[in-house]
Design a binder for these strands. Structure first.
Length: 193
DNA sequence: CCCTGATTCGC
DNA sequence: GCGAATCAGG
């Protein structure tokens, strides 16, 4: 991909509009990786990412020394200095210690087992969730199963009601609302634009 | 399994 | 510099 000025300009614009990297990629005929890679290199401010590698790494470090003395002061500098190389070394060491353990989650479990190996097989019964109904609102009743139950108006308000038209056999909605209700994910996405 | 964005690293 | 591969969360 040749990132000429025009391509970069479009990338920046679409990025600023909040489009996803994959969407921008579609517009520019490149992959999302290309987009995010370029954005990264351009120093564009990233959007909220689902993953937080830094946070995850921090958590690992916090979780590990559970049994350690709590008196130690946090070593901000030491954390800041950590570099990719250090991460690699850490990873290697971790693998040496526990070859089968790779995720932070399982690492936590391992820790717990080491602390209290006797109870590791304890099985907790399924949680019972108590369902409470708060100030029930009288809902309009669908007259019969053959009536469309597409909601109209805001639930909880007086004029809220169901469509009530003749429903398509086997479906809870009439023809009009069946068409709204059953939309393929991809199409819905494109329609929203 | 679909999506997301971020990072790594061979090219 | 580039972006596929990979990671990791939703």
């Amino acid at each position: 991909m040749e990132w000429n000025e025009e391509a970069v300009a479009r990338l920046k614009e679409l990025w600023a509009q909040g489009l996803s990297t994959a969407e921008i990629g579609r517009h520019l005929n490149v992959t999302k990786n290309a987009v995010v890679g370029k954005a990264h290199r351009l120093g564009l401010e990233g959007r909220p990412s689902p993953i937080r590698r830094a946070a995850a790494a921090k958590k690992e470090k916090v979780v590990a020394p559970v049994a350690a003395k709590p008196e130690r002061k946090p070593e901000e500098k030491a954390v800041k200095v950590a570099k990719p190389k250090a991460e690699k070394i850490e990873k290697v060491q971790k693998e040496k210690l526990a070859p089968a353990v790779n995720s932070a989650k399982t690492a936590e479990v391992t820790q717990l087992e080491m602390v209290a190996p006797v109870v590791k097989k304890e099985v907790k019964p399924a949680k019972k969730t108590k369902i409470e109904f708060s100030t029930p609102v009288e809902l309009p009743k669908r007259r019969s199963m053959s009536d469309c139950c597409w909601p109209i108006g805001d639930p909880g308000t007086k004029d809220f009601h169901f469509c009530g038209a003749k429903a398509i056999p086997g479906k809870p909605y009439c023809l009009e609302h069946v068409q709204i209700a059953y939309v393929k994910l991809r199409d819905r996405k494109n329609n929203v634009a």
